[in-house]
Amino acid sequence: MLSRRAWMGGAGAALALGLLPGHSHAAPLAKVKALGTLRVVVYKDNRPWSWEESGKLVGLDVDLAQAIAVKLGVRADVAELVADESADDDLRNGVWKGGLLGFMPGDVMLHVPFDRTFAARNDQVAIVAPYYRESFALAGLGGAVPLEGMPTEWRGRRLAAELDSIPDFYLIGSFGGILTKDVAHYPTGSAAVDAVTGGRADAVIASRAQIEEGLHRAGERASRISLRKGPLPAFTSPGWDIGMAVKENSRTLGDAVEEITTAMAASGEMKALFARYGVTWTPANAAG
């Protein structure tokens, strides 16, 4: 599979790829337009990206799915996928094969890591349209936790993290396990952020989007909570890009979606979409 990085940089490059022989490229996009429906797969329970609130699907990815459908002139059919053990499995269930219990694959899946190695081993799909740069951050009560200090200084504070996540491994596994007893585990990063805004924890490491949306939602209650400015010492994850996946043979659709997100980034529409949830839109490295 061609590296996406090699053909990033605008519609011209994408069109060039569309002229490669041996692929029937017209069909997928035309089919979506003919049916009038774009089936978009998002993750279930993935606040702030996609989650259910009062029986309605909401979140950054849900809004983005709607925006893309509108620009294609079709209706969005947004489907929630239960995450499997790895994102590789999710591509199988959500995009190219479908679920073991009949989950129908989507035309496009959102929130897919945009990463060369990951893309190379998932050659049944094309990963396109990188739309956000995700990274982990520390947030806490300024007075209670030395936010800019060494992690060893957080000993005895109430720390929160998503169970079995990179922040969890960082907090309980690093520094000789000195913080192990101080870490409370939550099912999601968002729930870990809520523990801090709700006064049940002093600090949290979670994704930047989870933190910003959590603080935005807490409003006044979050006024004493701030983010660490400097990098976390010996933290292993530099962040990652998030894009979208289409079936390997649906590149016309992939190209169309990529044109839309590129235009949304340029016009400020993407920034505004994220701002509604209190999240600072950060362009993907691959899109820069």
Binding site: Y43, N46, W49, A83, E85, S86, A87, D88, D90, H111, V112, P113, D115, T117, F118, E134, S165, I166, F169, S207, T236, S237, G239, W240, I242
Partner: peptide
Amino acid sequence: PIAYKKGAAYLG
């Protein structure tokens, strides 16, 4: 080193 779960980086 490159593992993802629920669309997020993960130590797999």
